[in-house]
């Protein structure tokens, strides 16, 4: 009885959250998946990042990620995990510069998955590349293989994790597009935070759905993949590179 009531409360809270949060449209996110249904292979989640809209001094996506996933904050050491970072790219000849938010690119052909000895690094049916920490042995071969430096190793014990984002010493981790949020039909934390600033530099959606805004934008404007030469078919695309 109480259980059902709590469930209803939770659902109501979630709905209220959706209705209240400003600037967030869930139309672009595919129809909600029931709790007991597996991720669909028809969907391919992806991001389109417009670097021309990304603010030089803005770090909304970075801090949202750290808060959501309970990652180290403040003065970052070389051993600290960073699931998303902003790479300042400068063309030395022309002097033109860009800020490029960089995270796991959720490749269709992920090298981290190829090299993982136990299969801990894997690609979900809907294209999200993530680490099954239950069978990760911490060999760090995926970190050697990833061209985007998207993975971090947890170098010390962790405390106070977000119950929805378990993370602990000795395993490798990286951006999983906030899979826990996607599974309840919410946007990744970085995308939500970016939208809240009004910049809307990040667009999340189903690359496979022709009706989705992300698919339409990619069809209309020139977009680029980072290290396209490696032919990994990343799920994160960039505009204005």
């Amino acid at each position: 009885m109480t259980d059902r009531r709590r469930f209803l409360e939770l659902s109501a809270a979630a709905l209220a959250g959706i209705a209240l949060a400003p600037g967030i449209r869930l139309i672009q996110v595919a129809a909600a998946r029931p709790l007991d249904a597996p991720a669909s292979g028809k969907v391919r989640w992806g991001l389109l990042i417009d670097t021309s809209r990304c603010g030089d001094d803005c770090d909304a996506c970075l801090s949202a990620c750290r808060k959501e996933n309970h990652l180290p904050q403040g003065e970052l050491r070389r051993t600290d995990a960073q699931w998303i970072r902003k790479v300042a790219v400068k063309d030395m000849r022309s002097g033109s510069a860009r800020q490029v938010p960089m995270m796991c690119q959720h490749c269709a052909k992920p090298p981290c998955v190829d090299v993982c000895p136990t299969g801990a690094s894997f690609k979900r049916a809907d294209g999200i590349v993530l680490v099954d920490r239950h069978i990760c042995i911490g060999c760090r071969y995926c970190m050697m293989a990833c061209p985007y430096k998207a993975r971090s190793f947890v170098h010390e014990p962790t405390t106070g994790q977000n119950p929805e984002v378990p993370r602990g010493q000795g395993c490798v981790e990286g951006c999983h597009l906030c899979v826990h949020r996607i599974d309840r039909n919410e946007l990744p934390a970085c995308v939500e935070a970016c939208a809240a600033t009004g910049r809307k530099a990040m667009l999340f959606g189903d690359l496979n759905d022709p009706a989705a805004e992300i698919a339409q934008r990619i069809a209309q404007v020139a977009t680029a993949q980072v290290r396209a030469d490696l032919r990994l078919d990343p799920g994160v695309r960039y505009q204005g590179l």
Partner: peptide, 14 residues
């Protein structure tokens, strides 16, 4: 990540 370009980041790129 961006061959031929200069890169800097909090994650020690470049």
């Amino acid at each position: 990540l961006f061959p031929g370009m200069q890169e800097t980041s909090s994650f020690f790129d470049g």
